[in-house]
Design a protein around this nucleic acid. Sequence first.
DNA 1: TTTATTTCTTGTCCTAGGACAAGTACAATG
DNA 2: CATTGTACTTGTCCTAGGACAAGAAATAAA
Lengths: 192, 192
Amino acid sequence: MNATLTSLYRHPLLTASDLELIAAAHKSVSLKKRDFILKKGHVANAYFCVEEGMIRSYVYDYAGNDITTGFIGKDELAIDVVSLFTRVPSEEYFQALTDCKCQMIDLDAFQQLYHSIKGLNEWGRAWMSESLFALKQRTISMITDSATERYARLEAQHPQILQQAPLKYIASYLGITDSSLSRIRKERCKSL
Amino acid sequence: MNATLTSLYRHPLLTASDLELIAAAHKSVSLKKRDFILKKGHVANAYFCVEEGMIRSYVYDYAGNDITTGFIGKDELAIDVVSLFTRVPSEEYFQALTDCKCQMIDLDAFQQLYHSIKGLNEWGRAWMSESLFALKQRTISMITDSATERYARLEAQHPQILQQAPLKYIASYLGITDSSLSRIRKERCKSL
DNA sequence: TTTATTTCTTGTCCTAGGACAAGTACAATG
DNA sequence: CATTGTACTTGTCCTAGGACAAGAAATAAA
């Protein structure tokens, strides 16, 4: 049984046989570094469960700066919920930051699962509310914490990101310039 | 038929008779200014549809500062999704900013509706993905926009907030101090 | 009315982090 | 091999917005 899917779809209402159905509905896909799984302006028609590698989501701000909105690593879901389920064009780009292995499922297959597996909608609700929660935490952190604190937090909570992503993307994710991040890291070293 | 509920539960899969069932499951409640509908540490067991007035959600940061996380106005939902559906203590406070009239529904009643009305889960998914989207926009705005721009955006998009909320709450919502907000508003006036 | 309490403004001074530009160190590609 | 990027660091100088403190002005409470 696929470990990534088992981890991602872990939920009290999903049985082992549900998991098999779920796994059967996913397709294994490989992505090469820089491949896009979704671009701004297109309507999403699938989502991706990351088994290996990392995907980055980003937007351009009014001044044309590339702003990283998220990093999706192992055992996480790369998805634009709004675009996929309400069939509107995405506002974001989703691009492989490294070569990746993913389990992909398209909307049709998902809808079928959704109707045949009772617990899946509870699972979906749980997943979304966790995402909402995580995003809320991030927003609060952007307001109340200094850049140094935000960096420390990221380092503590998501060390894999620091290993896989170039600093400039991490900088924009933290809401600072890459120069500032560089200086913050220099300070961090001194204090060790 | 209650206008707030009609507006809130508007969805292609919800029929007029669904709406009647939904409305019947809600209870009308009045809140007085400063009443709490949820406090940090408590598990939510209902949510509130605002008909009149405004509710504010907030947290305290590490330094004890009161940080506004959201304003919920007319025809919007005051809810801690995570707490309500996953039965964990809330991280936030939800307090009436003004006297309010609300339609309230508790978890039990909601679950019953949820199982008896087919379209309700699609509605919920749509609602959540919209919330996720709005929050994402806010996070990006915190990163890419200046305080002045964030204020201008709030003024354009949610003028009711400016009318109903004290500036200090708006300031913390925008991620600045009330002094700064005051100065921003002064500048704004000059340029008119 | 008088006294508090909260809301908002304003002043002075200071700092985190931006803008821009130059320099180093690897990788990738012809 | 030379070359063109891409990633990262560092320097100088500058500005948005914070900290703190002291008024006004408006609400509420006594």
